[in-house]
Design a protein around this nucleic acid. Structure first.
Lengths: 323, 323
DNA sequence: CGTTTCGATCGAATCGATTCGATGCTAACC
DNA sequence: GGTTAGCATCGAATCGATTCGATCGAAACG
């Protein structure tokens, strides 16, 4: 009877190869030298038994690491609708993947306390409280926060929201604009900083409202404002996707951009489905992602907290013109 | 000296509470009844010692499960640019999250053999080989394949590509179209099936080319075809995002849609930044995601392979009209 | 009062590796 | 030739829980 033979373990392989368990382990991990002959004997035994390599769960327990990094991004559906978030995620994944770490999506409400995470990235603009925070702190899980609340003990990755926004505002001022309105993100660190930068130049800028970074959301937000917009000659948005929504809605209502209305964004993402290039503040999304991932690696390796602040650059496109 | 006290373990808690290790474990897991008094004593001891709950790594080893499900989506940057993929991912995440499972992103080239995965979802239209496949099979990791290659032993989630495409084609035929061109996805199961459905009605449909599901990619693909398109009166795309690209490019070149050219897509996703509603084949993305997640749960629970085939529906919008 | 039953608790085995310290053996050196 | 290195290998401890089977007491029952 062969029966329901359980999967072979490293001990089986070692026995079959005629070596000790520890030697077999070394043959796989390479953590200490093993003679070529022995290694081959072990690998041959493994192949013969159908052993598919050391059980990751066992290794994880022994080493105290899971190889998995969590990334909190709010609601998946909305978070990834913004190309800026994707560009950032892409860079994070690339660096972590190269280091052999996996990236686990954490949505807002799920119960993730039962998952072993080596570190967590918090990248939710617009959310400054988090149910899981206390638990992560209690479990001593390193936390890397991107443009988020300055939680004690966490590494902080940020960009120059305020200076960038101010530069953009100055560009509009130089074009002769004096009455500027703005569309903001939900109350959050980036929202406050970007608005502050705008107010450095236009202290009385009118807030049309807040919405998430989504074309349709911005469109419906500004819809009724555009028909009766008073003296406003420019709308500054806190994301390019919002700006795209404003451009589309303005046109739908017969306004020329930038002739009748200048529109500006933030992020510097590609909007190929828009036939003009947005004037915007370009942030180094890939750099931000890489810096985030490297902060994670550092924290996992036990390094101290080192915050990162990245520069941004004004890019003048075709969506802004003389007042 | 307090020294660098290592984190407390369940054994410490049990000792401090004056109960056995096994009882302390039961107090946390609730897997067998424990008297209320005992449980409270254990929890109190845990709080006092700063014990943050059973170590997930240890539990995972003992239970032989990691609570993590991998999802292979190709390159992150391109995969999530398509709202269809996001809608699907969203549903997957919701169901798995409710079951306490985490979702780990697997990009193409990373080395994920070292991660413990309870199951893997393969959702890469346009890729029919996968370096990790052999390894997953060797490790007996359940595989759920979405619209992908029919790999032995894996659960198969699919939609009615062919029937849907054929229905769309018949709609165009009824409108009088006779010369139809198509933009396809990369060679893959969906690509073949959707094209077959089109050819059920238009056997000689001309393939303009293949590209990924991306607005800009479709735009540049069809750019030169549109100026000299011969008798073609309609373009059928294999995704809505591609269709949006074709619409935009057609307009840029002075063609009216659907006046001069009818354009159709596939998926049924929202394109708010397009001022018309695409004629398309609507697939139940959320259902597909849920079915996928439920298949995963079933396989993890040890159930056998049960494939799923979901229906689609033609939605006639404003992007198609009489030839 | 003796016996059965059931719930609460405990002790010990177990999950499957990694890794530390010790040992044996061979080669190099003086 | 004796001593010293140094490499390969091994045995045993360890990571931190879960879970099976046994035990103990008290309540229920005849």
């Amino acid at each position: 009877m062969s029966g329901p033979t359980r999967a072979p373990t490293l001990a089986d392989v070692a026995a079959s190869a005629g070596v000790s368990l520890s030697t077999a382990s070394l043959a796989f991990s390479g953590n200490k030298p093993v003679s070529a002959a022995t290694r081959e004997r072990v690998l041959a035994a493994a192949t013969e038994l159908g052993y598919s390599g050391p059980n990751p769960l066992a290794r994880n327990l022994r080493q105290g690491r899971s190889g998995v990094v969590g990334i909190a991004v709010g609601q998946l559906s909305t978070a990834f609708r913004d190309p800026a978030a994707l560009a950032m995620l892409d860079a994070v994944s690339e660096v972590l993947g190269a280091a052999g770490l996996g990236l686990l999506l954490m949505s807002d409400d799920d119960e993730h306390a039962r998952l072993p995470l080596d570190a967590v990235i918090y990248d939710i603009c617009g959310r400054e409280t988090w149910a899981a925070y206390d638990d992560l702190v209690a479990r001593d899980v390193p936390l890397v926060v991107v443009e988020g609340p300055d939680w004690p003990g966490s590494t902080y990755i940020d960009i120059e929201h305020r200076a960038g926004s101010a530069a953009l505002a100055e560009h509009l001022h130089a074009l002769g604009h004096r009455d500027v309105a703005t569309v903001t993100l939900a109350a959050s660190h980036p929202q406050r900083e970007r608005e502050a930068g705008l107010r450095d130049v236009f202290p009385h800028a009118r807030v049309l409202g807040e919405c998430e970074s989504d074309v349709a959301a911005a469109q419906s937000l500004v819809a009724h404002h555009l028909d009766d917009r008073g003296p406003v000659t420019a709308v500054v948005c806190q994301s390019d996707v919002q700006a795209a929504g404003v451009v589309l809605e303005a046109r739908r209502r017969g306004l020329r951009v930038p002739g009748d209305l200048s529109v500006a964004g933030f992020d510097g993402v590609a909007t190929p489905w828009l036939d003009l290039e947005l004037t915007t503040v370009v942030q180094p999304l890939a750099d931000k992602g890489r810096a985030t991932a490297e902060a994670v690696l550092g924290r996992i390796a036990g390094a101290g907290v080192t915050d990162v602040l990245l520069p941004v650059a004004l890019r003048v496109g075709d969506s802004t013109g003389p007042a």
